[in-house]
Each structure stands twice: as structure tokens, then as C-alpha cells.
């Protein structure tokens, strides 16, 4: 089986079978890490451009490691956000990349739809590494992989996503992915940070965290951005933290085997307490490890996925 599209622009358009294929493909890639030789030749001779319009060391290094472990030639282009307005347009940058004969472009951009514009402009396969508030598909895939790994299955898991749903591409991709795979999703946060019509995505909406936590199998904590306070979305970080911060007192009321996830980077003491982040409930570091395997799987499948995953030479 293969992926239908040559790009990965979002989870919305993937079928459950495709999601399962990516997760299954990531399993042997994760095993490869445990070997002394961590490289496979799958993408030898292929060029991957990491085009980052937003600084994100975390996502970029994860992609870079995945690309290098598949033996690809890697080129990093970081564009200062301030130069979007004045500098070279995305279209012109795309044409330059096209001239370099890149096979893949991994793009991170602060504006929704930028990967789609790129996909319309050039022939390389485009991987969306986060576009504005729209989607962050590889993040959702690595989160699903982590849940499946920890819980054995995704179906019927109660996943509570806490925080700023409105501005979160991670939340959107996770909602698509989780609901497609049969999980039960509840979003909880201040009413000002819950986007309109979100219930159309087959999620439950709640405002009181403590009422939904006891049923949770997975607590997914979103990062809260300080600037939201200035946009009249909540009065203060302190109040936010009191209402929606995940701390040990709250975890005590949860199921014993609940897991806590976070896409990083964390604001310790605001949306998540340090104690929780470093506890056994937290799977945050596993998410990081799994991210590399998932990104290898995505690149491998978009490259055609024909050859079997080979052993390192």
C-alpha cells in the first residue's frame, strides 16, 4: 500500500488506512535507532530542503535527523520572519528550490496554506511541518504513534486536549487524526480559546477541566502563548494556570495509567507543572524520539515506499 498524495499537507485528507500505514512503517524505523548503525540508504541521492519561516529547533532537528538517517542530502534554509514582508516572496524562493532540483521540501510557515501554495508551484514533494494555525501533521502522527505504543491501541481512548485550541495547529491535526482512528476526543479550555463549530469535528467541548479529567486515558497539554493575554482572550496567566494548568493535585484525580503529552516547548509552571512534566505519567521525551521515526516513515512512504526498509550497511 502507498500514500495517495505525493505531499503531506495535512491529516484532514488522509484515510485511516493511510494513517495506520504511516504508524506501522514507523515501527521498524524506531527499531533502527537501537542499533549501532543508525542509517539506512533509502533516500541516498535525494535532496531534502528544510524551509523554515519560523524558528523551531525542535521540529527542524527532528526532520534533519530523520533525513540524515535515510541518507538524504539535507539543505536547511531559515528565513527570518521579518523578511517575509520585505524580502523574497515564497513563490520566488520556491522557484529557487525548484532550480536546485530538490526532491522534498519540508516547510514550516507562520501562515496557513503556505505549504499548499508551495505544492501548487513546484514539483517536489511537500511536507507540512506546521502552517500557521492550520495543521502540523507529523506532530499528530507521532502523537498517535506514542499513544498506540503506550496504550496498545488508539480506538476508544479518551483523549482530553487542554488549552488554546483556537490557535493550535497541533490540536487541529490531532483532532483529525484521533477521530479518524476511533479515539474519543474532548477539548477543554477557556471559551475564548475554543474555535467556533469545533464540535462539527466530532469532538466534545468542555470548559471545566476537573469534570473531564477523571475519564481521561490521555491528557494532551497545549502550549499557551503569553501574547494571548493581550488579545483579551484571558485575563492573566495566573488565572489560566489555576483553571487549566496540569499539576499533581489534578493528576491524583485521574486514572492510574493516564499519560500526559505535550508537543513542546513547555511553559513549566503555566500549562504544566514541572513535577508532572518530569513524572512517570509524562511521555514527553518519548514523543521526541518517536518523532524521528514518524518523519522517517513519512519521507520513506512519500519517496514511493517501494524498497523494503533495509539494514544499515
Amino acid at each position: 500500500m502507498r500514500l495517495r498524495d505525493r505531499n503531506l499537507l495535512g491529516i484532514e485528507t488522509l484515510t485511516p488506512e493511510e494513517i495506520k500505514l504511516i504508524l506501522d512503517t514507523a515501527v521498524p524505523f524506531k527499531e533502527i535507532f537501537t542499533r549501532s548503525v543508525k542509517k539506512v540508504p533509502t533516500l541516498r541521492g535525494k535532496t531534502v530542503v528544510n524551509l523554515f519561516y519560523e524558528p523551531s529547533t525542535r521540529t527542524r532537528t527532528s526532520f534533519e535527523l530523520a533525513e540524515k538517517r535515510l541518507s538524504a542530502d539535507v539543505l536547511n534554509i531559515s528565513v527570518n520572519t521579518s523578511s517575509i514582508v520585505k524580502g523574497e516572496s515564497l513563490i520566488d524562493t520556491a522557484k529557487t528550490i525548484e532550480a536546485m532540483k530538490a526532491d522534498f521540501v519540508v516547510i514550516r510557515h507562520s501562515m496557513a496554506g503556505a505549504p499548499h501554495l508551495l505544492a501548487r508551484t513546484i514539483t517536489a514533494s511537500i511536507i507540512n511541518a506546521g502552517d500557521g494555525m492550520h495543521e502540523h501533521p507529523t506532530q499528530a502522527l507521532l502523537d498517535l504513534f506514542t499513544i498506540r505504543d503506550k496504550k496498545g491501541k488508539i480506538e476508544n481512548q479518551n483523549v482530553v486536549i487542554v488549552g488554546d485550541i483556537l490557535h493550535s495547529r497541533v490540536a487541529r491535526s490531532n483532532i483529525w487524526a484521533l477521530t479518524k482512528m476511533g479515539a474519543k476526543v474532548t477539548v477543554v479550555g477557556p471559551v475564548t480559546l475554543i474555535p467556533s463549530h469545533i464540535e462539527n469535528l466530532k469532538v466534545k467541548v468542555a470548559y471545566k477541566l476537573d469534570e473531564v479529567l477523571p475519564h481521561a486515558d490521555v491528557i494532551y497539554v497545549l502550549r499557551v502563548q503569553r501574547e494571548r493575554q493581550k488579545q483579551h482572550l484571558f485575563p492573566s496567566l495566573r488565572e489560566y494556570s489555576e483553571l487549566y494548568g496540569i499539576d499533581m493535585d489534578r493528576l491524583k484525580k485521574c486514572k492510574k495509567d493516564v499519560i500526559v503529552m505535550h508537543p513542546g516547548p513547555m511553559n513549566r509552571g503555566i500549562e504544566i507543572s514541572s513535577e508532572v512534566a518530569d513524572s512517570n505519567f509524562s511521555v514527553i521525551t518519548e514523543q521526541v524520539t518517536n518523532g524521528i521515526a514518524i518523519r522517517m516513515a513519512v519521507l520513506y512512504l512519500l519517496a514511493g515506499g517501494a524498497e523494503k526498509v533495509e539494514e544499515g550497511e
Binding site: 494555525m133 492550520h134 495547529r169 474555535p195 469545533i198
Partner: peptide, 13 residues
Amino acid sequence: NEGYISTILGMRG
């Protein structure tokens, strides 16, 4: 327009 489409596209409504 603010609504379902702005929500899934991640665009300010």
C-alpha cells in the same frame, strides 16, 4: 468568514 471553515483551515475569522 468565522465558522467551521475558518476553524479547520486555521484562519482568523
